[in-house]
Each structure stands twice: as structure tokens, then as C-alpha cells.
């Protein structure tokens, strides 16, 4: 793949360097390097995630944003090996110095829950309907020499920690007896049970009522600070991102198109796709302009256009964009963009 993306003269190709904010403590980071995931498609194997690199910096929330089909969820799940059996994964997922992609199944099972946990999208289907909330939260402790009674006590503490009232009684309840927001709180308690350092939250608020979404996001932010967690927040919702993300990774058609601190990325996007995303969000202010929806439909990762994958929808596209794949380059300190004309955008 790298041969398809020659580095333009005078710019350094950044792939092994962490984005801003994480340089201080790379040992406490989860580093993703050139992650590529191929899935069988209509015309053979297709790299639906292609050379993705980013860091989950310690104590920060990294936002992974993109439209559906951009490969963002698959990228997140690949960090703990939860990809389809047919997927071929290459690259590196570095926990300390250890590459989890080559660590083997038994090791990955140790990492799951204990080092890296997942909060899934829809808590109404991601919780087992025939098991009590308490058992599901405490289950990860059963295999660690903890008695069932102790695991249940711990589950009560965790449920209290995530703000479930009357946890001592509700620990014996089943998922259908909880509201959507409560279920997601329980899901978060479940993810915390193994005392992981990293949490992968895959669209954690998408299935929830709008009024509940903010509270769940606040909870995730509070837990990150209290427990010093590093969080990967996968979402298609820019408003969610602007709310909680410290760093942003913008994905399009399986590739990273922009990376950097969330605040600056959203204020001055260095990639036309990010810019279009920002403009597509309607403002709630009275009298403000109607949102500018993104034209066209997302690129099919099984059938990426040649050159820059965003070129068919990009207002600035030139001939070069249709032939040459832009490399991810550092445009300003900590700001990376995969646009040939990134300098002109800033």
C-alpha cells in the first residue's frame, strides 16, 4: 500500500509518531500502527481498513469519527481481536511493547476486559437477556479466584459507581427490567469490572434517547478522569465528539484523513471531508443558517475510487486527486492531514 502513496518532497510522512498530547507517556498509550483489515468482498479480499495509525493517549478521549462504512467500528474492534473470522488483519496494535495482533488467542483473552474493555452500541441487545445484571457485571471476576458472592458485592459497588440508584437491589434484576440509559450504565459497569486501562466505546449513545445521551457522555468523561482511563470513542456524531473528545481521528473509506487535537481539528479542519462534516451539523441557534449537508454518498470501502477516496464528493478535487493517493502528512505540529492541498486549507 505504501508504494501507492509517495511522500511529496519536503514533507515528512508521519506514521510512527504519536499525535499531540501523547508524546509525554507513550508507555501508557495504546498505539495503533498501519492497521489494515481485509474482508472478503464481491471481488475478492478488500482492505476495508487501510493503514490506520493513531494513539489512544493515557487519560484522554480519542474520538474516531466517520460515516457508516468508514471502518471506524471495525478498527476499534480489531484492537481486541473481535473481528469476523474471515478478516485478515495486519499492522500493529501496541500495548506497551507488545503487538496484540500477533500475541495469540490466549493472550488476547487475558487482555480483554482486564486491559481493554468494550462498551457496545446498543445495550438492549448487548446484554444477555437471561442473566442478571449483577452476574453479567461480575462474571469477569469469576475466573480470577473471586467467589460468586464477592463478585456480586463488587458488582453492586460498580453499579453504584456508574450511578445506578438502589444498586444493592437492582443487582439481581434482568436487562429488560432496566431502562435504556440504565442498561448502558450497567454495560459501562461491566466494562469497568476487570479494571482496564483502556475503554473502547463503540457508538455508546447512538441507541439512546437524546436526553440520556448527554448523561452517559458525562459519565464516561467522569470515569475517565476518576479512574485515569484512556478512552476510544467511536461515533458518527460530530456533536458527541465536540462534547467529549480530546483528540480526533477522522476516517473516510477505511483511511485516516485527518488527525489532531479535537478543538483545533474542528475549528480549522485541514481536510475537505472534515470541513464538510463540520458544516453538515445543524446549529441550534435561532436564525442560524441551515446546515449544509454533505453531497453524495459515502465511498464503498469494497470499491474505493482511485486517488483520494473523497475526490468524487470533494469541492476542491483536481486531476491529481483522482490519480494520486494523498499521504497522511504533518501540516502543523500535531496536525496531520491526508489532503494534497492541506496547506491551502489552513
Amino acid at each position: 500500500m505504501s508504494d501507492k502513496r509517495p511522500a511529496p518532497a519536503g514533507t515528512a510522512v508521519i506514521s510512527d509518531q504519536a499525535p499531540e498530547g501523547s508524546r509525554r507517556a507513550s508507555a501508557g498509550s495504546l498505539r495503533v500502527r498501519e492497521l489494515t483489515i481485509a474482508l472478503p468482498g464481491p471481488r475478492g479480499m478488500a482492505e476495508v481498513v487501510d493503514g490506520v495509525s493513531f494513539d489512544m493517549a493515557e487519560g484522554r478521549t480519542t474520538g474516531l469519527i466517520g460515516e457508516s462504512g468508514s471502518g471506524k467500528s471495525l478498527t476499534a474492534m480489531a484492537l481486541v481481536g473481535l473481528v469476523p473470522d474471515t478478516a485478515v488483519v495486519s499492522g500493529q496494535v501496541l500495548l506497551g511493547e507488545e503487538n496484540l495482533l500477533t500475541a495469540g488467542r490466549a493472550r488476547i483473552r487475558q487482555v480483554r476486559g482486564a486491559e481493554i474493555s468494550v462498551v457496545f452500541q446498543d445495550p438492549s441487545t448487548a446484554l444477555n437477556p437471561t442473566m442478571t445484571i449483577g452476574d453479567q457485571v461480575g462474571e469477569i471476576l469469576w475466573g480470577r479466584g473471586v467467589s460468586r458472592a464477592q463478585a456480586r458485592e463488587r458488582a453492586v459497588e460498580l453499579l453504584e459507581h456508574v450511578g445506578i440508584p438502589d444498586a444493592a437491589h437492582r443487582v439481581g434484576a434482568y436487562p429488560h427490567e432496566f431502562s435504556g440509559g440504565m442498561r448502558q450504565r450497567a454495560m459501562i459497569a461491566l466494562a469497568l469490572a476487570g479494571e482496564p486501562r483502556f475503554i473502547l466505546a463503540d457508538e455508546p449513545t447512538t441507541a439512546l434517547d437524546v436526553t440520556v445521551q448527554a448523561r452517559i457522555l458525562d459519565l464516561l468523561g467522569r470515569l475517565r478522569d476518576e479512574d485515569n482511563l484512556s478512552m476510544l470513542l467511536v461515533s458518527h456524531d460530530l456533536r458527541v465528539m465536540s462534547h467529549v473528545a480530546d483528540d480526533l481521528v477522522v476516517m473516510y473509506a477505511g483511511r485516516v484523513c485527518e488527525r489532531g487535537a479535537a478543538r483545533t481539528v474542528l475549528r480549522t479542519p485541514l481536510h475537505p471531508y472534515t470541513g464538510a462534516l463540520v458544516r453538515s451539523v445543524p446549529s441550534v441557534r435561532v436564525g442560524s443558517a441551515i446546515a449544509d449537508p454533505l453531497p453524495g454518498s459515502p465511498a464503498n470501502p469494497f470499491d474505493r475510487p482511485p486517488g483520494c477516496p473523497f475526490n468524487p464528493r470533494c469541492p476542491r478535487a483536481e486531476d491529481r486527486c483522482r490519480t494520486e493517493v494523498p499521504a497522511l502528512r504533518e501540516i502543523a505540529p500535531g496536525r496531520l492531514s491526508a489532503c494534497h492541498f492541506a496547506e491551502e486549507l489552513s
Partner: peptide, 26 residues
């Protein structure tokens, strides 16, 4: 193929535990 089976896997359970504790009963 239910999401809660993925949840069970994400806890680091063995395939056997996933099958017996979560899949078979349902």
C-alpha cells in the same frame, strides 16, 4: 450472532464459557 455474545467475548471468556454460559441457555 447476537451482540451479547460479542459482549461475553469482550470480557475475555473462553469460547467454552461463552457457549455454555451465554449461548446454550438462550
Amino acid at each position: 450472532s447476537e451482540p451479547y455474545i460479542q459482549t461475553a467475548r469482550s470480557k475475555g471468556l473462553s469460547e467454552r464459557a461463552v457457549l455454555t454460559r451465554h449461548a446454550v441457555r438462550n
